[in-house]
Design a protein around this nucleic acid. Structure first.
Lengths: 338, 338
DNA sequence: CTGAAAGCGCTTACAG
DNA sequence: CTGAAAGCGCTTACAG
């Protein structure tokens, strides 16, 4: 493998010389081909092919003050990333949406303080044009604040608590979704409906609880609320606690599918039939929703659309527009658990 | 959110003016502080603090012809990434090793032809100084070839079939590990030992089979070999096939833990006791090895060390050294399945 | 130890 | 439509 003797790469100058035009013309060709004659175009194209020219992204970024790449910032740990399938779905959809517009994605995982410091440095240094902020938790107001202050556009996935007005964001309509699920549970004739709520430092966590509560109105019973952290284990723990506390429960709304799966497991262990004795509803429509027994009735989050809108918004803001906030509807998916 | 009016960032010139020194001195300070007097150092440090100066990585890269970042190239799909825990372990360990040396990691997933094309462009364009190639499969000789030809240093994880002599690499000693596991199974008194081998386009897959076979010598029976693709499902399928074909089997060596877990599941379903009637050995010592019932006896791959060595090697090659090939030993971990 | 100057490889008004 | 020239923000011999 040769390294030290890596041959010098061709530059626009080489291409220009080869094509018999100026560097400016080559550059124009490279940037859309406007204002370059058919002849020049052909000559440059041929010269590029012949020389094997590849653009130097650093030189270009230095000149344009643009990097043509954005960060996908996940303030979570490796464990959480591989545990919660929603992250993967967002990553893949975002990645696709970005590829379509030819901007590259830099994936940054910042679960520890040290990683967050590095992430901040990387981002505020100008490595990317903007950031897609994806995290379930409120996370690090400090990090967000610093990135924001450095003038780097941010679009959040979900309502960014504390930054609702400062950042652009796109979120599912958590409150409406929770109301709809709760109403559906009631329509089944259930009257003792419990909920396994999400984390309180998450807008999804609080809004789904708000929706649940407001739909129930006077029937709301604070004793029928347990909080989880969106993990399956927390769903099991919450379901157990709920059952021990009140044996009359006839339905449960879990704030995400992973916790619902945990609840289902506990119910199965205790020999409580679902949906006969207790109906269970989840949120997300994650892959696990079709794998549980019985399959999970849930509220589908439009992850693909969320990702597309995030990308569109971010690119808009990078382009100089003011950031917008977008709320997308969820959809009830009825399966067997309720 | 302000964007269009992003204030101009301070540059070395501003810092130099503020500190009352030349830009060269500021640059020297930024690059290790050699040949700068204590007074100048203090002045520059103060000026940086005061101006809030952040280095412009593109300008630096353009000048140095270095990016100070490397790619973690995974030629797999999203599904595989989230399915096979080995990737996550390598990512996290690599990421840590790189952070220690202050070089950033760009994670690239290239599972489809289109993604591979983009990956190639990105890499050969000069976005990174080198690449850590991580993939179970032989993958894309074309991609590797092009990156290699562009002069970008590559270190592979596992022996890169077809490029053993051209690229640097670090791999676990698959053959020796497989021999050791097989020998261990025999030491338990087992004589009808089957194997669920890995994919044939993987050096790990072939070498583990080679080790298994050579340890068995004349006792090797081609009927007791089934191939899987490292997924749990393939482990189940292989175990079923093996059992249907030969009921005298008293031990199984699976080429990775995921397939071993699949085998264990089938054995449990058929009511075959492990390890009493059939002993099962895996490979990797993945997290799943401690979660199966019974817990899995396996060969531990030194993922942390592999990652560290990959990073060390790559940085060496980037620094101009010739690439080396490193083979690391595996370790037998005895649990309950054998 | 330090400064002046050239150079890294692009892009972009500007004048034509 | 095209070229000459300045500029993006660093680093690095070189001379002192």
């Amino acid at each position: 493998m040769s390294t030290g003797d890596r041959p010098r790469r061709p530059t626009v100058s080489h291409v220009a010389a080869e094509a018999g035009v100026s560097r400016g013309t080559v550059s124009r060709y490279l940037n859309g081909g406007h204002w370059v004659s058919p002849e020049a175009e052909a000559a440059v194209a041929a010269a590029i092919r012949k020389t094997g020219y590849r653009i130097n992204p650093h030189a270009r970024s230095l000149a344009t003050q643009r990097t043509n790449s954005v960060a996908f910032l996940l303030t979570e740990t490796f464990e959480r990333l591989f545990e919660d399938p929603n992250f993967a779905r967002l990553m893949r959809a975002t990645s696709a949406a970005l590829a379509e517009r030819d901007v590259s994605l830099v994936f940054i995982l910042a679960g520890s303080p040290a990683e967050r410091r590095r992430a901040r440095d990387f981002i505020t240094q100008g490595h990317v044009d903007g950031v897609l902020l994806v995290s379930s938790h409120q996370g690090e107001p400090g990090l967000i604040e610093e990135i924001h202050r450095a003038g780097v556009p941010i679009i959040a996935c979900g309502v960014p608590l504390g930054f609702e007005r400062k950042l652009g964001w796109v979120a599912a309509d958590d409150e409406a979704g929770a109301r709809e699920m709760t109403a559906y549970l009631r329509s089944l004739g259930r009257s003792r409906i419990a909920t396994i709520a999400g984390p309180r430092d998450t807008s999804g966590g609080v809004q789904r609880l708000v929706g649940f509560r407001s739909e129930l109105g006077d029937d709301f019973d604070a004793d029928l609320v347990e909080h989880g952290d969106y993990s399956e284990a927390s769903g099991r723990a919450a379901m157990s606690a709920l059952l021990d506390r009140d044996p009359t429960i006839d339905a449960v709304f879990a704030a995400n599918d992973l916790m619902a799966a945990g609840a289902l497991a506990v119910l199965a262990e205790r020999g409580i039939s679902v949906p006969e004795r207790i109906a269970v509803g989840g949120f997300d429509d994650a892959a696990v929703a079709t794998e549980t027994r019985p399959a999970l009735t849930t509220m589908r989050q439009p992850f693909d659309r969320i990702s597309q809108e995030m990308v569109r918004l971010l690119l808009q803001v990078i382009g100089g527009e003011k950031p917008a906030a977008i709320t997308l509807p969820t959809e009830l998916v009825v399966r067997d658990s309720a």
